[in-house]
């Protein structure tokens, strides 16, 4: 009886571990996709409704989910008090890094987006954002491939590991 109960617990645990690993990959894709939508939103605002960056960011953040929402709102608030938006952007994203599912390369790209706002001309900012968006789209493709290959693989491996443990225990 105890063995059957232990086996069930092990199987459930291995299933959840596998699912958690897979969901990290799914979250990574979702976050990158959300960020790309955010960049598009910012570009549209800049193009058609040029207003203060704090306002643009706040409005765009309202449409986002966590952890982007709080991080971007934090940047918008700080933009009143500090002169270098690129530094605020980088620092805020890197400080909140643990809340994101993206990897280091992806985070460093997201954290460097703020650099484009140091330009004075709107067109240059939009071009900078377009470049960022293209790179994010490449990263999304990579993340989707990772989700498909690695995510499923880790899920299967954890289930197999669980099954192996159950066999050993029994």
């Amino acid at each position: 009886m105890i063995k059957i109960f232990g086996a069930a617990v092990l199987f459930t645990a291995s299933y959840f571990i596998g699912s958690t690993i897979l969901s990290t990959y799914i979250m990574r894709v979702n976050q990158l996709t959300e960020y790309s939508k955010f960049l598009s939103e910012i570009m549209l605002s800049l193009e058609y409704r040029p207003q203060d960056i704090s306002q643009i960011l706040s409005e765009a953040a309202d449409k986002m989910s966590q952890p982007f929402k709080d991080t971007i709102k934090q940047i918008a608030k700080c933009s009143f008090y500090y002169s270098r938006l690129s530094e605020i952007w980088k620092t805020t994203f890197l400080t909140n890094k643990k809340q994101f599912a993206v990897n280091n390369d992806e985070m460093s790209l997201i954290a460097s987006t703020g650099d484009v706002f140091s330009e004075i001309q709107k067109e240059k900012i939009i071009n900078g954002l377009k470049l960022n968006l293209m790179r994010i789209e490449d990263l999304i493709k990579q993340a989707q491939a990772d989700k498909k290959n690695k995510g499923q693989l880790y899920k299967r491996l954890s289930l197999l590991g669980g099954a192996a443990l159950i066999i050993i225990i029994i």
């Binding site: 040029p50 203060d52 709107k122």
Partner: peptide
Amino acid sequence: ILHILNMGARNSLFAREEEI
């Protein structure tokens, strides 16, 4: 100079093209 301008324009010099 850049610090003062950025603070004055609330980091939004791009939105002040006409003024600039």
